[in-house]
Simulated scan of single mutants.
Amino acid sequence: MPSNAPLILFWTRWFNRPVDIAAIAQCAVPVEWTNDRRRLAEADAVVFHLPNYREIGDARKYPGQLWVAWSMESVVNYPMMADAAFMRHFDITMTYETGTDIWTPYLPDADWWEAARRAPMPLKYESAPAVHFQSSSFNKSGRDTFITELSRHIAVDCYGRYRPNREIASPDLGRQTKLETIGRYPFCLALENSIAPDYVTEKMFDPLAAGTVPVYLGAPNAAAFVPDGSYIDAASFGTSAELAAYLRYLAETPQAYEAYFDWRSKPLPECLTRQLELTASRPENRLAELVRQRLSLRAGPPTGRPYLPLGFKRFLSTRLRRLSGKFRER
């Protein structure tokens, strides 16, 4: 590592475990990564995982240091992301939102899309027409009510840790088994835990990879993240009965159902291709490059004393909580 390589410190954990430095050590941009909080004073940039916001309060900010706000979670679930008074402490933002400094959507890369297009269509043989996977109780989107009401009109097989009515058959090989299970159904309920622009997660993309039609409830601009005509917008139906009737129609009309897979034989839309180009480089590479750019603009060596951006009261409560090991993230 060059002696002048910027040092980027991950101050917080990633939910309940330390950031895996080894996994990003092969970054194409010459920087040094660490999660050793003892090196705070020498760090050129400090990254804070916002869902672990309780761990931020005892960080001092040193002159010239860049603070990075990092999150893949919905602003609805973590409203501090929309709090200007809180966010002003950060110099770089790194989230799923398109206006962020370093855009990190859930959008799969170009190789994923090509593999999804080539994958054979699986046989649909389950008795229920729809499947749903859910393990979290987060429900800011109203998905609990959505499933309850839809299930009154059409059968839904639910898997996962949250309110399942079916169990995965052994052996459970994780993601592979999940996709194989989804592929056995004509439809997959792709229900986000909250509704926010740009917040389009793997819930949309897993059914596309599995060869199943997503029934999507989530971001109002979800169409910008997928090929045209590849999913069903649940919000476009006035009632659950209307949606159920449409799903039954598709299940009984092969030509209409198969039209949802026409995207596999067409080029990806230009807007999606542009997004794939913007995110072709890994997030850590783009972060490292931006940090180096920002540092190069310095007029001279930074001067001044470190301070506590969130105040002494937050510093003290965070330090006491850290000493007692009583952080609660989720």
Score class of each variant (00 low, 15 high):
E252F: 08
A234L: 02
D228A: 13
R248A: 15
A244R: 10
A244F: 02
A222F: 15
A241V: 12
A235N: 09
A245K: 12
A234D: 06
E252S: 15
R248M: 11
A223Q: 10
A244T: 11
G238P: 03
Y246M: 12
V226P: 01
D233V: 03
A224N: 09
N221S: 11
A245H: 11
R248W: 06
S230Y: 05
V226F: 06
D233K: 03
E242P: 02
Y257N: 12
V226N: 03
A256D: 14
N221E: 06
S240L: 06
E242C: 04
R248E: 14
A256M: 09
G238Q: 14
S240C: 13
L243Q: 13
P220Q: 01
D233H: 01
R248F: 10
Q255R: 12
F237M: 01
L250K: 07
A251S: 15
A256W: 09
L243H: 07
D228Y: 07
L250P: 08
E252L: 11
T239M: 03
V226E: 02
S236K: 09
A251C: 13
P220I: 05
L250W: 01
A223N: 07
Y249N: 09
N221H: 05
G229W: 02
P254F: 09
S236E: 08
A224W: 07
A223M: 07
P254R: 15
A234E: 06
L250Q: 04
A223S: 13
A234N: 10
